[in-house]
Structures are given as structure tokens and as C-alpha cells.
Design a protein around this nucleic acid. Structure first.
Lengths: 188, 188, 188, 188
DNA sequence: AATGAATGAGCATTCATTCAT
DNA sequence: AATGAATGAATGCTCATTCAT
């Protein structure tokens, strides 16, 4: 049954979001998913591989959310604003996934499998091309891709985390204003 | 002798930066600091309290570094650029401290002691007043403090981490350009 | 298999009787029972809970032994003499169990779960009723139950412990004489 | 200063009565006595020797209390009743000492130094002679000394412990009745 | 596919004791 | 006589993983 597989990852997500990787013991996953130890190890070779499967699943969903509304077909800078808002909304609506990604991306001891990273980001290709086109057209600051990312989507995610944590509350107008501010920052 | 206390925190910092909280076992701290288990627990009530003492020490150093050159006395927007560059330089020059703070700030399972947080940030008060003055003067976007932080210093730290990880290399001109871009983003 | 559970309690009993609670380390239980640490903690939540499970098992056996020969159906004072001898014989024949109970009952730091106590003593109800009847009939001194206990069975156990320790040796006639002496003490 | 020595034993007594031997760590003794670790080990070679010094001090006091009113000069059975009541009163008035002795006497892992035992009981000699005389005179049951002890003073202490624990409350008349009952039990 | 009892290396922590001051 | 920082072997317990059923 595929439902066991799903139940395991579901439980793991809930637990990591609440207790972190450190606090997410296999015993806890077993209890919450109502699946036996043996079954978990039938589906995943190890705890780390389970975590990575979850990572791939979540990252795939995030990338899909980013492309909602096909922003790459919209005019500059609307297209980047749309991307920003897509990232922000995804994070707000998926707090557990966001917490998971935050932990995964900032923990030095979680194995990065760079091959997988590449494969996962394949659906983003249309967007990447658009960025390259805009760079060539001179509307974007001539900076490494990762820099542009941090100045825009990185900020969107950081702010969404602050809102999830309850430290700020941004209304729609503010969200739009900040999205524009980020676009201004990377505009030439 | 205070040197045992220092040796413990030194070893803990090295280990957390390399192996993360999870991988920093007390056995490893004992081995690296060349201090016995009993002595560590003579100075710190638990592993968590040791980590928090380290956090306080590092955060204090970071806040001092931010105020280097007394940016609060410089004209807008030089003052914010200076702050941005101070944050970026601190991170680049203190990769282990930066790694530690990154992990601490993004782990849901590390105890936040909000009292300590408040006390630690006391030296920043002059800077905070300057920000409040600029907000009142209308040169800064009217947004919550945390939002302004993420649009500026948050980006500086995120980029410094990327550079430490070797994914980007920013020369001085680029650093200055990006600092200016962030100032532009929060300018009215 | 229930045999692991049994082996653990068996080893714990042997060790407590010989070395006391203090000296019965989990490492020793692991070695003697030839069961792994994990398995012990699979069956018992903690060392204390293991000790308590053992206590319940032993106490149950002791209460059964007390009722051997259905003393409650014998005439006064034969019935009390029988009880006295049952207690004495149980202790002599079960020196390790007796040592365990002695330690448990006299240690201030071993958690009493009064609920369990009540449940364990349920099989004694017929005997208790008989005591109550004898009290009402006026053949027993009008004293609290615990006092009658200490004057009779309490003495039996104390003497059995002396014999186990090798400080005295009581032959059958002496045992019977002392049982009678105790009955005399509580007779009206 | 002798007051340090006294403070150490005082603290140890309080702690053993409340937490047991197991729970009485040297760290706790240090904290409660307000005496440093070094000083404790200056006065006592080890924790065990400290416990034994305390044992000797308490046992000496108990034996003195037993002889209060010189019972050995009173007629039979008044003399034994007096002894019984002396034991009972001592225990009620010295609950911590009683708890200590109870634990010490029933723990298999506390070193018995039989030499000391003999020396401590020297002041009891007059009483012992009186018992031997009564045995010879045929007023006492012809049973080993330890048996007579358990049937009389052993019961007094057991009942005092029950009263300290709050399970029974014996008024003066009841105490006297039970003392008489015990005398009856050992009378020929 | 699924179970869950069993494993044992490893974990954070304790604690009686020592020794330089 | 007194201090208390320092020691490190030992403690109770955890946890990712295995394997017979």
C-alpha cells in the first residue's frame, strides 16, 4: 500500500517541523505514523534517506508553487513580483514544509546530494531562461544568480518565516510593496 | 583558571561549525578541549547551557562588530551601507561564528531565552534610535523593523554564507553595489 | 518470547539480593541476564519501573504463600499460627525475595505506588475478613490492623531474616513456640 | 573547628533520612553542610566512613536512651516494659536517626564492621546481664537472645516507624498495652 | 509488504574523590 | 584546617537499525 509510505513522510514532516531533526527520532516517527519500524526500513534505507525523500517531495512542491500563474510570460517587473508573491504565499500556506526546508538548508550535517538538486530544479528551467534573458537585456543588475535570488526570493522566504513565527504580520498591500522593493533592488 | 572555560567554548564552536549541534557530542568536546567531562559540567549545567553561553558570547561579538566605525553618526544612506558592510565582513571573517548563529537561529529545538536576547541587544540601542529617527524623517519605508532588517542585514548575512560555502565570490565593488541596492530597496 | 522478560527480572532479583539496589547497576543486569540494554528498556521504561515490576511479582507470590492451606478456615488461634508459619517458611525458602522485600520496604527513596499496593493485596481479602470477624468476636486485642501485623507476621519475617543471615537457627518446635507466643501477645 | 565535623554529620543525617543513602550524594552534603569537599575528605576518608561515623554516633545515642531510668534495676516485667517504652519513645522523638538506622540495618550493601558493633554495645552490658539472669530464673522463654529482641524491642521500633510514617497513631495507653503484650509473649 | 522484539554502540550526565592553592 | 576546580570511570538511558516471523 502506498498509504504507508505517505503516512511515514507525513509523520516525519509534522515531527521535524515541531521538534527539529534532532528531536525527530525514529521511535517518534513509528508512533505518529502508526507504521512499524520494519516497514519504514522497507521503504527507506535509513533515517537520512527518509529525510531526503521528504526533502525532494517538498522541494518539488515548492518549485511547482513558484511557477503558479506562469510568471515567466509576464512583463518585467511584474514577472518577478509574481514569483516573489508565489514564494511568500507558498511559505505562509505550508508552514511545516517551510520549517523543514529552513532546517535542511541551514544544517551543516545534512547530506547534500547535488545530483538530486539539479534534477529537482529542472522544472524551473523556463524561469531561469527568462532571468538570463532579462540579464542580457540589461534590466537586471549584473550579479551572480545566487545574489539575485537572495535579494528577492530569499527575502520573501525569510519574511514568511518571521510571519509564521508570529513576529510580524504583513497585509496584502505590504506584501506587494516589499515585493516591489526587492524588484527595485535588483533593477538596473 | 578561566582558560578551561575558554577552551571548552572554543572547542564547542569549532565542532558545531563543522559537525552541527547533532554531531557535536560531549565526548567530542571533551577530546578537542582537552578538558574532562566533570570540568565541563562544573562550568555548564548541561550541553544546552553550554551552547547558550556560546551563543551569548558570539552574539555579543557580532553586535560589537556591527557598530564598528560608529555608523549611526554618518549621513543617510552611508550609515546603512556601513552597517551592511560591517555585517558582511564580520560573517566573512568569522565563518565558524556565522555557521553557529545560522544553525542556532534556524533550529526549532534550540531553547530561546528571550530575556537574554533583550539584554544582548542593549548595545544596539544607539543604532535603533537612528533607525527610528530615519523612519520618522520619512527617508525609510514605513515597515516593521524586522522587515527592514531582512531587506538589508539579513541579505548581507545570507550572501556571506553563500560566499563562505563557496557558491559565490563578491569583490569589494560588488559588495558595495549590493549594499547600495539594499539601501535603495528600503528607501522611500 | 516472554523468556527475555523473565531473564531480566531473574537477574535483577539475584543482584539486588546480593548487592542491593545501589549496587545493582543496569550494566550488571545486562551482563547477568544476557539481554541487551535496548531490550531491557523495551520491556521497562526505567530501572525504577523494572524494580517495581519485580516488586509486584514477588509480593504476589508472597501473598499466595501466606494463604497456603487456607488458614482462614481453621479455628482460632490455629489460623493465626498457620499464617505465621506460612510467612516464616516463605521467607526461609525464598531468601532472595525476602532480601528484596526487606530493602524495598525500608528504603525511603523507592517510589511507593499506592494504587498497585491495593491491587496486589486483593487476594488477601478473605484473610482480612477473618481478622475483622475475630476482632468483632473479641478474641483479638482491639488494636489497629498494622499493629497486629507487626506483632505477628512482622516478627515472623524479622526472625526469618535473622536466620537467613545466619545469626539464629530455629528448629520446627521453636518456630511453633514463637508462633504461639505471638498469638498469645495479640489474644485478649 | 569541631563545628565543621558536626555540620557534616548533621547534613548527612538530614539527607539520608529524606533521600536515602542512594540520594545522599557528596555534592548534596557539601551544599547542605556549607563545608567544602576538601574539608569533608579531611575529616572522613570516604563517603562510607562518614556514614559509619554517623552510624556510631546515632547508635551510641540510641543505647543511652534505652537505659534511661535504669530499667535493669526494676522488677520483672516492669523492667522490660520500660525498655520497650524507651525504645519506642526514642524512635518517635528521633525520626531522622530512626530512618537512618532502619536503612542501615536493612541494606545489604552497607559495610558492617563487627568490631565497632561490639564496642558500641558495651554500655548495654548491665542490661544484658539482667536478661541472662531472668533467663536463668526461668521467667523468660528459653530462646536465643536475638529472638527475644525481635519479639520486644524489634516490635517497638517497627511500630514507631509505622507511626512516624503516619500509618498509625498510638496513645500512651495503647503503647503501654502493646509493651505488656510483648512482655507476655516472651514470658514463660 | 508488514511486524515489533531485539540489538549494542553511543549519548549526556553524575559523582566520589583528588590536589594545587 | 580549609577551599573548590578538576578528574574520569561509571551510570542510566537512547536510538538508528536488524531480523525472525
Amino acid at each position: 500500500m502506498a498509504s504507508k509510505y505517505t503516512a511515514i513522510l507525513q509523520a516525519a514532516l509534522d515531527l521535524v517541523a515541531e521538534y527539529g531533526f534532532r528531536g525527530t527520532t525514529m521511535a517518534l516517527v513509528i508512533r505518529h505514523s502508526r507504521v512499524s519500524a520494519g516497514t519504514i526500513y522497507h521503504h527507506f534505507a535509513s533515517k537520512d534517506e527518509m529525510i531526503q525523500a521528504l526533502y525532494r517531495q517538498i522541494k518539488t512542491g515548492f518549485y511547482q508553487a513558484l511557477l503558479q500563474g506562469e510568471p515567466q510570460h509576464q512583463p518585467w517587473p511584474r514577472y518577478l513580483e509574481q514569483l516573489w508573491l508565489n514564494a511568500f504565499h507558498y511559505a505562509i500556506e505550508h508552514p511545516r514544509e517551510t520549517s523543514f526546508l529552513e532546517q535542511y538548508d541551514h544544517a551543516p550535517d545534512y547530506p547534500r546530494e547535488d545530483g538530486a538538486e539539479h534534477e529537482l530544479s529542472a522544472p524551473l528551467e523556463p524561469m531561469m531562461q527568462r532571468v538570463r534573458a532579462d540579464l542580457a537585456a540589461g534590466v537586471l543588475l549584473d550579479l551572480p544568480f545566487d545574489v539575485l535570488y537572495e535579494l528577492t526570493l530569499g527575502v520573501a522566504l525569510a519574511l514568511a518565516r518571521q510571519q509564521i513565527a508570529g513576529r510580524i504580520v504583513l497585509n496584502e498591500m505590504q506584501q506587494r510593496d516589499i515585493a516591489r522593493a526587492c524588484c527595485r533592488a535588483v533593477s538596473r
